[in-house]
């Protein structure tokens, strides 16, 4: 076993960072939306809106459908949020500031990403509703397609560190960031990152053509938790991208944690902007592109970065 924060500290810290991250994400998303829509921006309203809408959802009652799987329905957002927390816990803020640094941090993160599809499937299946189930199936197709390029894109970053620990991976980027070492890695990771948390152009399970997809039957707290968990996952994906591709805490002048936050926000802006600037992708196209284009590209990325290290 390597460094672990004590359980209480880790849970509180990760929880607080997650909530803060989700809030920042909500504000950023709204801000980008307003810029694209060309509406005038009032800072006060912008900052208050996520809190107000959240409070509104807390006060709305839960809804039920005919013969749902109540346990699964309640469990799905919790599972999704928990997975986001596990994924985020792997990201180091500095060499010594990390909630958990298992030797297999990379695999833990990947396992959390893989379990996301179970959370979404559970969420779509349990309300016993046609649109929700359709959303769940779409994510199934989407997830099975992006798993392999995702693993390969991240795997290439573990090569220079010769370790699966995220701290080691970041540490190995002292002189050169991985984004320079393997230029194909970050774009691949970002495409797949949008797909993991089904944002913007790859929002197929909760799409507008399904009137909300897996979330269509949710109201009140269910909806708040689901949206929150989804946003948390995007934060975790951005934070991990900042760690393994953009050199995590490495950077001049500022202290390490500040760099991590800055890089995470920068990646978040890119990920969120894609939601306002790119049209929804058809599932058929995404599956095709994943298997035919992304997997060979990711393989090539691994081979090249491996060859460069020899």
């Amino acid at each position: 076993m390597r460094d672990y924060a004590s359980p209480g500290v880790a849970i509180v810290a990760v929880g607080a960072i997650l909530v803060a991250g989700v809030y920042v994400l909500a504000v950023l998303d709204r801000l980008l939306g307003m810029i694209v829509a060309g509406t005038s921006i009032r800072l006060g309203a912008l900052l208050a809106e996520p809190v107000q809408s959240g409070a509104l959802l807390v006060l709305q009652e839960r809804r039920t459908t005919e013969r749902p799987d109540a346990a699964g329905w309640a469990l799905a957002p919790a599972l999704f949020g928990g997975l986001a927390a596990v994924a985020l816990a792997m990201v180091p803020l500095d060499r010594d500031i990390v909630a958990a640094d298992p030797a297999t941090g990379f695999v833990v993160f990947s396992a959390a990403i893989a379990m996301v599809m179970i959370a979404i499937y559970l969420h779509g299946w349990s309300p016993n509703s046609a649109f929700a189930l359709h959303g769940a199936y779409r994510y199934g197709a989407q997830a099975l397609s992006f798993q392999i390029p995702f693993l390969l894109a991240m795997l290439a970053t573990a090569l220079p560190a010769e370790s699966l620990s995220i701290v080691d991976i970041v540490d190995a980027q002292k002189s050169v960031w991985n984004v320079v070492r393997e230029p194909a890695g970050l774009p691949l990771y970002l495409v797949v990152g949008v797909a993991v948390s089904f944002w913007g152009p790859l929002n197929l399970p909760d799409a507008a053509d399904l009137a909300g997809g897996t979330v269509v039957e949710d109201s009140g707290l269910d909806r708040l938790l689901w949206k929150g968990a989804r946003a948390a996952m995007l934060v975790a994906v951005a934070a991990m991208g900042a760690a393994v591709f953009l050199g995590g805490w490495w950077g001049p002048w500022l202290p390490g944690p500040a760099w991590v936050v800055l890089k995470t926000v920068a990646l978040l802006v890119v990920l969120l902007a894609s939601g306002h600037l790119l049209a929804r992708v058809r599932i058929e196209q995404f599956v095709f592109v994943s298997w035919v284009l992304l997997i060979p590209l990711a393989l090539l990325n691994v081979f090249v970065s491996g060859a460069l290290l020899l």
Binding site: A103, T104, A114, A143, L144
Partner: peptide, 21 residues
């Protein structure tokens, strides 16, 4: 056996989804 355990979860998540489908 951290690696084995995590890979087991990683693998089974995909497998269960296929199974469900």
């Amino acid at each position: 056996a951290e690696f084995l355990g995590m890979v087991l979860i990683l693998m089974m998540a995909g497998e269960m989804l296929v199974m469900a489908i």
